[in-house]
Amino acid sequence: MPGLLRGVARTAVVAGTATAVSNRVSRRQAGRWAQQEEQQAYQQQAYQQQQAYQQPPQQPAPAAPPAADDMTQKIDQLKQLADLKAQGVLTDEEFEAQKRRLLG
């Protein structure tokens, strides 16, 4: 019986030691993986910041043409419509409809 007890005790010690070593290795490996992931995230962030600094600044949208130019165009078109009406190409109704569309 003492031999059997000694064998069981030895097995328990070996199993306990193996479990402790396995847990320690697992924790160490998890720590290394976490450190690698953290380092990769840091490098990715640094790369993105570098790319953001290297991109040329965006140009502002072109400004809308001044209202004076638009009004000048409308006046010119109204004059053309009046000339066409005077020549008899446009009727009074057509002239009024085009004028309303233009001034609209």
Rank of each mutant, 00 (worst) to 15 (best):
A52T: 01
P56D: 08
Q39H: 07
P62H: 04
Y47H: 13
Q36A: 12
P56Q: 12
P62Q: 06
P57N: 04
Q48P: 07
A64I: 00
E38A: 03
Y42Q: 14
Q49D: 15
Q51M: 13
Y42N: 10
Q36D: 13
P66N: 14
Q36N: 09
Q44N: 10
P56F: 11
Q55R: 15
Q48G: 05
E37F: 05
Y42R: 14
D69A: 09
Q36I: 11
Q39E: 11
Q49R: 15
Q51V: 11
A63L: 08
A64S: 03
P57Y: 01
A61K: 04
P60T: 01
P60E: 09
Y47D: 13
P60W: 01
Y47P: 05
Q58W: 01
P60V: 01
Q54N: 08
A46T: 10
Y47F: 13
P65I: 12
Q59K: 04
Q58P: 05
P60H: 00
Q51C: 01
A63E: 05
Y53A: 09
Q45N: 12
P56V: 03
Y47N: 09
Q45H: 14
P56M: 03
E38M: 10
A68Q: 07
Q59P: 02
A61I: 01
Q36G: 04
Q54H: 02
Q43K: 11
Q44V: 09
A68T: 02
Q39A: 15
Q54F: 01
P57T: 04
A52E: 03
Q51G: 02
P66A: 13
Q44W: 11
A52W: 06
P62A: 04
Q54I: 04
Q58T: 07
Y42I: 11
Q40N: 05
Q39I: 07
Q58M: 01
Q54L: 10
Y47E: 14
Q55T: 10
Q59F: 00
E38W: 00
P57R: 06
Q50T: 03
A41L: 14
Q39T: 12
Q49G: 14
Q51S: 02
Q51L: 14
P65K: 01
Q58V: 15
A64V: 07
Q43I: 07
D69E: 05
Q36M: 08
Q55S: 00
Y47K: 10
Q43P: 00
P66G: 12
Q43Y: 10
A67M: 07
Q40L: 15
Q39N: 13
P66F: 11
A64H: 02
Q58I: 06
A41V: 11
P56S: 03
A63T: 00
P62F: 00
A61D: 02
E37V: 09
P62I: 03
A46K: 12
P62V: 00
P56A: 15
P66I: 07
